[in-house]
Simulated assay, not measured.
Amino acid sequence: MLFCYSPSLHDEFPERSTGLLHVQGIRTTADVTESVARFTRLAAQRLTSGTEADLPEIQAWRRVFSRMGCKPTQYRCAPEALLRRLRKEGGLPSVHPFVDLCNAVSAAFAIPVAAFDLDRIAEGLVVRRATGTERYDSFSGEVERPEPGEIIFADAQCRAHARRWTHRQSSYSAVSCETHHVLVVAEAMHGTAALDVGQLITSLHQTILMLWPTALVREVSA
């Protein structure tokens, strides 16, 4: 099992659509500059007639965050934060070639795309509500405990690899220079989510194979 949802979340969020890629053979030597620029241009085009808050994909996640008890403008889903930065600063941050590609694709589709180092995850990820006992390693170096009932990505060792669903990943399983084995997760809640997630996964799959031609890439089910 690489990834699944708790039964209660299946029932609570029936509008959810998910796409997964299992990738082996990632290296930092790939030049993603042109691909990142192409997807970033697509993202910028979506902002020409308004802000990220006007996009149906973002509006759907804002409704989900409200249902989770989170203030949507305080805790933004990942693509909203990326698009907001693109609109205000004119570009996206550069972290790691694979992460940069995923961020650009996420912004272009306005859909959350998370990339996890599978070698840092115990027995796959379960999207579930937290008990409050899980450990979350922040990028600031602090250890946090998700609030009971908060939706997290958890593994078998009670580690939280993402908080507030699509808001923030953990530093513990973030893709780094040592990462070679990745799970990519794309999730959407808007009306055409199934179609758009499918297109995103296909586009990302093809781009990964172009940039990392020796990588093994396969689509898996949630």
Rank of each mutant, 00 (worst) to 15 (best):
T131A: 04
T131K: 11
G132W: 04
T133P: 00
T133V: 13
T133A: 07
R135F: 10
R135H: 09
Y136E: 05
Y136P: 02
Y136S: 02
D137G: 04
D137H: 12
S138N: 07
S138K: 02
F139A: 08
S140N: 08
S140I: 07
G141L: 06
G141R: 01
G141F: 04
E142T: 14
E142P: 01
V143S: 11
V143G: 05
E144T: 07
E144R: 13
R145A: 08
E147A: 15
E147G: 13
P148C: 04
P148Q: 03
P148L: 03
G149W: 09
G149C: 07
G149P: 07
G149H: 09
E150A: 15
E150L: 12
I151Q: 01
I151T: 14
I152D: 00
I152R: 05
I152T: 09
I152S: 05
F153N: 08
F153S: 11
F153L: 13
A154K: 06
A154F: 01
D155T: 15
A156G: 09
Q157D: 13
C158R: 09
C158E: 11
A160Y: 06
H161W: 02
H161N: 06
A162K: 03
A162D: 02
R163I: 14
R163T: 12
R163S: 06
R164P: 02
R164D: 00
W165P: 00
T166N: 08
T166M: 15
H167P: 01
H167L: 09
H167N: 07
H167T: 04
Q169I: 11
Q169E: 05
Q169H: 01
S170D: 05
S170F: 09
S170L: 04
Y172S: 09
Y172I: 13
Y172K: 07
S173Q: 06
